[in-house]
């Protein structure tokens, strides 16, 4: 894709752990039409259930859903899922890469790792969303997204299935919005319309 077309893309990165599956499925169902957006999902899950998640997501959206393979091209209007047991990184503006190095917060894929990589690559064109979970993963990543000029949304811990993970992020960094899951799609619609 041409350089300037790439420069217009927005990057929606979503991190979820325990208790986030329903929220993610619902979010995907209600994703506003996303011209010029790339969606990247990092979800902690058991290795065995992998292809199921792709199926569950595909069932709810017209956008193509891809579990990322090594050096896969990043295309707009696509939902990408970090594969189980690999960290997902941005290699170049138009290319993913995978990394099997040490777990971070007992997790591979780690939300922090992807959030940090996305923040570094795409700066203020990133929207980061951190959902329910029982893990400290994602907090540092949210801070990095914010520091790089991105927009940060945390699921309201009080309404999350497991509030620990979003609370960890809130304890570490100020964020732009704290919302119950049901209100996130509406906000996204506004954010993606503005530009």
């Amino acid at each position: 894709m041409a350089e300037n077309a790439l420069n217009q893309l927005r990057y929606l990165v979503i991190g979820g752990s325990a208790g986030s599956l329903e929220v993610i499925l619902d979010l995907v169902t209600h994703l506003p039409a996303l011209p010029h957006a790339v969606v990247i999902l990092v979800v902690h899950r058991k290795k065995d259930n992998d292809s199921i998640l792709v199926d569950l997501l595909s069932y709810r959206t017209k956008l193509p859903v891809r579990e990322v393979e090594d050096k896969e091209t990043i295309s707009p209007d696509t939902i990408y899922l970090a594969p189980p047991d690999y960290h997902l990184l941005i290699e170049r503006a138009d290319l993913f890469s995978l990394d099997i190095s040490e777990k971070v917060h007992f997790s591979r894929p780690s939300i922090d790792v992807t959030f940090e990589s996305v923040a570094e690559a795409f700066g203020d064109r990133v929207i980061g969303i951190l959902l329910s979970g029982a893990n400290a993963d994602g907090a540092v990543g949210m801070a990095k997204i914010r520091k790089a000029g991105g927009y940060t949304i945390v699921q309201d811990p009080a309404t999350a299935d497991v509030g620990y993970m979003p609370q960890q992020a809130l304890d570490l960094t100020p964020v732009d919005s704290i919302l119950p899951a049901a209100e996130i799609p509406g906000l996204l619609e506004k954010l993606l319309r503005i530009q």
């Binding site: 050096k71 960290h87 990184l89 941005i90 890469s97 990394d99 190095s101 990589s117």
Partner: peptide, 9 residues
């Protein structure tokens, strides 16, 4: 080598 992971290393 792929840059993103090399930088992390």
């Amino acid at each position: 080598y792929a840059r993103a992971s090399l930088k992390r290393r």
